[in-house]
Design a protein around this nucleic acid. Sequence first.
DNA 1: TATCTTATTGTCCAATTGACAACAACCCAA
DNA 2: TTGGGTTGTTGTCAATTGGACAATAAGATA
Lengths: 242, 242
Amino acid sequence: MPNIATPPISHVEPLNLPQNVIKALSIDNLVFGLDEDELKILLVKQTDPMHEGKWALPGGWIRYDENLRDAAYRLLEELTGVKQLYLEQLKTFGRVDRFPTERVVTIAYYALVSAEHYSLVAGQSAADVSWQSISALPELIYDHAEIIAYGMKFLQHQVCHQPIGFNLLPEKFTLLQLQALYEAILNTKLDKPNFRRKIMKMDLLTPCNEKQQGVPHRAANLYRFDPETYKQLTESGFSFEI
Amino acid sequence: MPNIATPPISHVEPLNLPQNVIKALSIDNLVFGLDEDELKILLVKQTDPMHEGKWALPGGWIRYDENLRDAAYRLLEELTGVKQLYLEQLKTFGRVDRFPTERVVTIAYYALVSAEHYSLVAGQSAADVSWQSISALPELIYDHAEIIAYGMKFLQHQVCHQPIGFNLLPEKFTLLQLQALYEAILNTKLDKPNFRRKIMKMDLLTPCNEKQQGVPHRAANLYRFDPETYKQLTESGFSFEI
DNA sequence: TATCTTATTGTCCAATTGACAACAACCCAA
DNA sequence: TTGGGTTGTTGTCAATTGGACAATAAGATA
């Protein structure tokens, strides 16, 4: 491809960018949600006639004076109403032809959450918002299918090497709930006493000194994550090897 | 910080960008090199008066019609003469104030190579190029020290979870050479017998039935990587736990 | 041949793991 | 009131692994 001084002329409408954003740089969010033991992803339906009926990752333009992660949070909330989750940078996608009218590089952020804990509100520039099953994705704009595929692969790898997935649980939870989560993600059965020992030795959980309510059997102790250890483990990067 | 429609006015000279690059988007390369059992990083000395004497990661602007990794390879070769290595995307750094005069987001790429296998040639816009010891870095421009610190942490994590670094060794190598490699990257001393046991149990190495030549002591056995196991381990993503 | 250096094997003990037994708590129904 | 059902929690034990280090082997050299 030859070096050119200006963007290539295109038959498609040029972008109508807001004034205070960084041209050629966007954010796209991959929010994976566990919904009844099924993995889904948060998508928004496009409004503009050009992409009518197609879906997209919730994303958009980064403001000139806005940090990358802040932009990710803002765009996600604007488009879907989803907030209060932890977004982590995934990868930057910048194939020359990934965007039709201009050269646009996009920085992908991702999160893994419990789908039922969030209520979706379609923003102004979204025709619809919903959790879509990973195994039956609708038609997506640009290279968003490719980005999702990369995110999936990454997620499957990460789940074994980082304490992610803990935000899928309520603030206070039982050890069996945590175990069930791991069993679902890793698709295996785990030994209850051994799982307990292993988790507890990490000093990741602090007992709430409260018990489960309304169960027809002995009530289990409730635990919460120790945010300090959790942060340490997240930063240092460790192995679960459960 | 208020939203603004144009870049902030600064007392520093504005950027004098070539015409065919993407404004606000750059590449920086972290090339880690093992040099006599010491871990170093490839840096270039700045020429412009503003940063005189300071060093920087080899990087620069991405062309409008150039894929990200292609830009990384081009810039690395232009500045340092280093080519024929595998660059992998590390992370994108975009703090609002990371660059003094404008908003610039940079995409970092990294590689791990054997320093002595490359000859350095300082490019036109570089006053000097050299391998600098990680443990005694010179003064760096912008947030490059921060980027290097992130890259180091990433490297140390990767080395425990992926069989990377094996391309730093000759085809046939001794166990002590392999151990020295790990010690350099992890910056620790390892027990020789234990390291041997652990590595051998992975079935990653096959003996060449040859011995080291010309050493003034007992010659060690030479090994090579078993490409099949190596590939399996790379793909599945495993734990070394060394 | 004595001695030096490094390679390689062996040993010991502590810590960890996995499988499973045993006991505790609580609900519920007879 | 009592005993069975269910799940939580603690304990046990053999097998495996890990780290520290001793012991031996194989050259090279003085």
